[in-house]
Amino acid sequence: MKPEQAQTSMRAKLEEELKEIHFSKSVEVLNRTHPRSLPAKLRALWNYEIELPLIPLGAGFAVLLVIVLATQFEEHSDPGDLAGDMPRADRQLVEAGGNTYWKEDFEKAVKRVEGKDQS
């Protein structure tokens, strides 16, 4: 027996058996469990409950997010032609030993030579 036939016969059997019992909204219930019309079928699908594997899906979503973000910010990270030479903000000049240096560079240089002395 095909499943549809089985369903139909089952429904006939059920109707027969429940003839004496009166559900309120019995028609509605029957329509929902066994829809016949297209809108009814769609509504069934709409409310269909699916089970999703959380890990593969989450991983996929994360990958997608990374790709999107990467393309968004790609333009910010391409190498500049003038890197290195560009002055940086918050720089201060310092006068030391008669020369004028950028404070940051000077302190780095002093640290470097002091490191060399100790090694």
Partner: peptide, 30 residues
């Protein structure tokens, strides 16, 4: 680990995600 979700809720979720992406592109990103 699995999660149970109705198709309509899944649809709503995807719609919200998409809309926020568009919103981000049009208004926030600039």
């Amino acid at each position: 680990m699995k999660v149970k979700i109705k198709v309509k809720h899944l649809f709503a979720l995807v719609t919200v995600l998409f809309a926020s992406f568009v919103l981000l592109q049009v208004f926030v990103m600039p």
